[in-house]
């Protein structure tokens, strides 16, 4: 009998560490160069209100991407949720009732996506592309000529309120993030999620309930989109039918920068959370130091590419050079996606 070594008890994720170092460096840099950035110590925290909705979407999208699927409808679902909550509030429905209806709309869309993808086996790219249009048009028709605005203080506090020095939106995000991290990394559900992402067919043969897991993943993504919509409506004190749609790509960017493999399987939600803060503070810092949003977008793009190259070199097989890893990657590229069973 041979001896197989068990892993060292704790291994620090190299990529997560890199992201944290980059985040700290970025915070220090902007604090030193841009006066308003640090504010009175808590200014930095208030900035997070700007990107919390992106972060919430990234949590849901991250789970879906871990299964090797994608949810293109997340942004549009957030728009719908914002419009619904706004309209209900304007119609005098109580705050909790309105929130309930809006979140239910998000959950409904997620559930629908999940059922179609899991039971009919249609590619999630197509399914969610279609539901994205449905959600958007629903939002437009509900919002009508004059989208809702001007909500109660109580409701606005979800987006702009403070709990002590901490914005309530940030608090909400942290709670959701903690739940997602635990769900994905510590439960049987999370394991099923990633194993499906690595190989759907091996997962089927191993007795993993792949359909049920997929339905839950999409439903959670819908739930998170619904919540993101609430925060958006509360923050802007109004709702437009494209209020969430523009957040989809930034959210997916966070997921990818956070090290989640776009083909599924590999990745940690905790690192996605760090990536959310890194990208969020980056764009806020750049905007505050007077850069145009065009510059911000361009810098984000460049950074993403740099980050992915660095990540690749961190992950290179031990004993293999970076050049070798790149070469192998290039020569295998074409085989990559189809080799995964769906």
């Amino acid at each position: 009998m041979t001896n197989i070594a068990l892993p060292r008890r704790y291994t620090l994720p190299a990529w997560g560490l890199t992201l944290i170092v980059a985040l700290v460096a970025e915070l220090v840099y902007f604090s030193l160069t841009t006066r308003q950035f640090a504010g009175h110590g808590t200014g930095m925290l208030v900035l997070t209100e700007q990107f919390v909705p992106i972060g919430i979407l990234a949590l849901g999208a991250g789970m879906v991407i871990l299964t090797g699927n994608i949810d293109l409808s997340a942004g549009a679902t957030a728009s719908l949720s914002a419009i619904v909550v706004g309209t209900e509030l304007r119609h005098g429905v109580g705050m909790w009732g309105a929130i309930g209806i809006a979140v239910a709309a998000g959950v409904g869309f997620g559930l629908f996506n999940g059922l179609v993808v899991a039971l009919l086996g249609i590619d999630s790219l197509l399914v969610t592309l279609a539901t994205q249009f449905i959600a958007t048009s629903l939002a437009t028709s509900i919002g009508g000529e004059s989208p809702p605005y001007g909500f109660s203080d109580m409701f606005q506090r979800i987006g702009t309120g403070l709990v002590g020095p901490i914005p309530s939106a940030l608090l909400l995000f942290l709670v959701l993030a903690a739940i997602t991290v635990i769900l994905v990394s510590r439960t049987g559900f999370g394991r099923a999620l990633t194993l499906i992402g690595y190989s759907r067919s091996a997962a089927d043969y191993s007795g993993i309930r792949t359909r049920r897991t997929l339905v839950i993943a999409f439903t959670l993504s819908g739930l998170f989109s619904g919540i993101a919509g609430l925060v958006l409506a509360a923050y802007y004190n109004s709702a437009r039918d494209d209020i969430g749609t523009t957040l989809l790509l930034p959210a997916i960017t966070c997921v990818v920068l956070g090290g989640v493999d776009i083909f599924g399987g590999k990745g940690r939600i905790a690192e996605v959370v760090v990536a959310v803060f890194f990208l969020g503070f980056l764009s806020q810092g750049l905007l505050m130091s007077g850069r145009s949003s065009l510059t911000v977008t361009m810098i984000t793009g460049i950074l993403l590419i740099v980050a992915l190259v660095v990540k690749l070199s961190l992950e290179r097989q031990s004993g293999e050079s970076l050049g070798g890893a790149l070469r192998r990657l290039l020569s295998q590229r074409g085989f990559r996606r189809p080799a995964r069973q769906r």
Binding site: L195, Y198, A202, Y205, S206, G207
Partner: peptide, 17 residues
């Protein structure tokens, strides 16, 4: 195709079922 999760470590491959 139906057995191993190629990229996954040995430990989680053994416990997958």
């Amino acid at each position: 195709r139906n057995g191993v999760f190629a990229e996954v470590d040995l430990s989680r491959n053994v416990t997958a079922a």
